[in-house]
Design a protein around this nucleic acid. Structure first.
Lengths: 197, 197, 197, 197
DNA sequence: GAATAACCGAGACGGTACGTCCTGTCTTTCT
DNA sequence: AGAAAGACAGGACGTACCGTCTCGGTTATTC
């Protein structure tokens, strides 16, 4: 019966959030600035998102969708490729700062934790699944046996890849270059073989 | 000639920082609260640390020193042990919140990045080195050949272990239990074997 | 052709306005609250009144109609009576708050000023006129000579009575009791005598 | 032991308040605007005054100090003079709007009521006292007998004068000119005579 | 054993962002 | 066409911290 929420506004806000993020970074990103940029009142922001963190999660989540897994001919090449893509994505200030900031906030906010899991983690596991299927088609990995076991593997591999890349580039503060990607891939492939045995 | 800074104050401040962290978490930790708790003026804090992040890095760094690597008889057992110890440490709210918060800050602050590397990362690599030495003594791993190669391995392994644990518990928001530790260790051991080959 | 405006709604809105005024006072009275209380949309309010002040003037004006001037036997008793009645009316929070609030608004809004004059001031001058006629009948005051002179007197007396009561109770913040009413009446009667001379 | 509050800031704030009041009027006066104008942080305002109303009372109170009672030779002339001076003061938008606005607020705020009484009402009663003393010196009024009686008279006369002027100019919305002042004075003088009898 | 400088506690200061609230307009749907 | 519902732009509110500063008072060195 009442006026429905403007979907235009939703999009404008998310776009504005990313724009402000690039220009000012997480810490200088203000709800007021986002609102102004989107040509929207602050009220409208708060009607849709509880706060800065939730807004940024949703705004940033789509950036991870640009990650793709083109067929590079072998599982090793595919892994190296995704590692470098991910590292490149984490090189952008708005991505790395936002990601870490919201993860930090999520340590004291279960709802935010859930939102991150849904918008980022679960969505990007597709990459692991895709690589796995392709490797099975090539015969590099045995076909799935137990679906539970498979899900566990996917989770484990996802955490190992994403965790190692994030940790090296953001915590250890070292660059993720081709050489590191090769060594990491060697380790992971060895591990996968052991896991399947 | 002049009066030296009180070392008592330093300790009181670090203790107060940890206390406030436990009670209020990172986001509700204020310099004023730390000062009040320590019975110290805000000026005194700022005379010693540039800001909240640096103070917290120093206050939290020592918590990681409680991580130890008792000899559990095999490399596999040692890895599982340290994974679970680390996960347990990350279970404490003040540890996980502070760690992620300072890492988040460090993405836009090189000095802070260096401080984290020195106070946390480099200090805890001792665990990897120790485990490696012990495994070599047991004959589970070949002795060091090239020191450069060894350093690279230590870094890689450290990032893989720490990264996977942090990612699973804080980003993926899943518990790091004995079963996961076992699967992860299997993967890592397989990888190590491949790496040495 | 078109649907006529509901007169029921008008009454419900004015009633709701008074109810909210009593409960919340002028400053916490919101158009939304009045609308909700009246079971009416905000649009409907704005279709009938330009804003909060005008609505409140209309809602409150009728309260002053309860002032009456029963014949107490002498001019002095009549004046004391109306002073105390008026003071009693100003004792109600919704009356005093609303009256002063709309007067305050009217200092920067000529239309509102006119509305107050019409709805409250001119309407209540009847009390002065009535008391005057009665006193003339009793022989306490000489009959009207010049109608212009009479009108001026009525205006003057109205401002003196209303002004003194409002000022004492709302600005000086002292109670208007029987003793004060007696002293004020003595002063006014003396003044009236001088005026007629 | 700590840094004392800046008296410069106090003065700058009160000056800024009056300036903003003249330019924008009560309703468009914001704390932020006052702060900016005074070159002061909003915090500093709130450290000294609980809110807009209290600040404005203090800022406006001094304006009433410009009212004076030069000896015009007779009690009648003195009263006419002060009536016209007061009316002139109430002609300034910032004075009338502010006065009425804070009085309106004070109807639901006892602390504010007290502040107005102290800063405006009690301070300006000096005018009545002064006029009375002078009239007694001239022999127009009998000397004080009972101090309680005198205080009551002063209060009553103050409310009658101030009330009538305020009511005529702000509620009845008619101009207070020389002719009205003359008629009002005649009434008041007659009343005073009756009061003393 | 004074002199003297840097220390200390307290807390006021200029700023900035927050999230809430209310206003008056507008859109949508129902009657 | 009028009304209920409520989303919208705009803008002020009062609060909370930040990091700097100004105080008066207190040590330890140095002369």
């Amino acid at each position: 019966m009442a006026r429905p929420r403007s979907t235009q506004a939703d999009q404008a806000i998310l776009d504005a959030t990313r724009a402000v993020l690039v220009e000012s970074g997480w810490s200088r990103l203000t709800m007021a600035a986002v609102a102004a940029r989107a040509g929207v009142a602050k009220t409208t922001l708060y009607r849709r998102w509880p706060g800065k963190s939730e807004l940024v999660v949703d705004a940033v989540a789509v950036l991870f969708d640009e990650l793709e897994l083109p067929d590079r001919g072998s599982l090793a090449a595919d892994i190296e490729g995704v590692v470098l893509s991910f590292a490149h994505l984490l090189g952008h200030p708005e991505t790395k700062t936002s990601l870490m900031a919201v993860v930090a906030e999520s340590t004291t906010d279960a709802a935010l934790r859930g939102r991150i899991k849904a918008a980022v983690v679960d969505r990007q596991k597709r990459l692991v699944v895709e690589g796995r299927v392709r490797a099975q088609a090539r015969g590099e990995l045995p076909p799935d046996a137990d679906p539970v076991r498979t899900a566990r593997s996917v989770d484990l591999i996802f955490d190992v890849i994403a965790g190692a890349v994030v940790h090296r580039s953001l915590v250890s503060a070292e660059s993720v270059d081709a050489a590191w990607a090769r060594r990491f891939t060697a380790l992971l492939l060895g591990g996968l073989a052991a896991l399947e045995a």
